[in-house]
Design a protein around this nucleic acid. Structure first.
Lengths: 139, 139
DNA sequence: ATACTACATGGAGCCAACTCCAGGTCAAAT
DNA sequence: ATTTGACCTGGAGTTGGCTCCATGTAGTAT
């Protein structure tokens, strides 16, 4: 028994409107194996159904979380069998968190350093204190 | 009158040891115009002098501050005439700070989100709460 | 004399995630 | 009948910052 909900089909142009992804990007996702092959009409036109749209939304959200397309491809596979994949998903997420925190720490340091450079600019008459500072940070 | 300090010349291999940059990278900096043309011996071998080394250290530090090579090329030019370039340098630095802070905000949000996902993992029996969360964040 | 090493050059390849292009098909509108 | 528009395909190009390669030469060590 199939679900009784109608299952609308979107053409690639509909999807670009709906999700804000370019047609090229949509084809690229398929070509690069992030998405499985999309169904076609007899004349070869892609027909995205609701589950494809759902996968695409998943991709968009996972990308915002800094997952790479390769990682997302894996996540999508895990999504097919969530029960079984729990540990793997958690591990991938934990690793992403770790990367995020590391990058966060770096950027915090960097932000402080840049702020300091700008502060040097007030109250320096000659030369360019920023350049001097980049110059002889070792000195 | 030239400065009375001796001006040692380093071959490319010396520089790789000294700074930890590969010979290819050093040649690339020159090729791509980040560095001006390095002096050569009669037989064509690069001779890096102290000012080249200084420029290279500058590049390394500026890179750590997330300046692109294109920006660094500009900064190096400004370094030649710091007096005149002050405003431009400050502006570039301010912009870099702004970018840094924006990215920092994004990453902070992301870090919180990932942490939340991981927390969901404790205390959920069935399915994969992370995948479900990426799925229906809109719902 | 010859092997070895460090260097030189121009140019290709790599990564990610697109983006663009030429040339072809198909369906609807005029 | 033909033109328009949306779509298809395979493949090339883009960006940034390298990295690798083939081939050639200069100078030194044995």
């Amino acid at each position: 028994m199939s679900t009784s909900t109608t299952h609308p089909c979107y053409r690639i142009g509909d999807v670009t409107e709906l999700l804000g992804l370019s047609a090229d990007t949509l084809r690229y996702y398929e070509k690069s194996g992030v998405l499985p092959r999309i169904a076609r009409t007899a004349s070869g036109i892609r027909q995205y159904d609701n589950s494809d749209i759902s996968r695409l939304r998943f991709i968009q959200r996972a990308q915002k979380m800094n997952f790479s397309l390769a990682e997302i491809r894996d996540l999508l596979r895990m999504r097919e069998d969530p029960q079984h994949a729990r540990d793997e998903v958690r591990q991938l997420t934990a690793q992403k968190l770790k990367e995020t925190q590391a990058r966060l720490a770096e950027l915090t340091t960097l932000g402080n350093e840049l702020q300091l450079l700008l502060n040097l600019c007030r109250g320096s008459a000659a030369g360019c204190p920023i350049i001097e500072r980049i110059d002889d940070k070792d000195a």
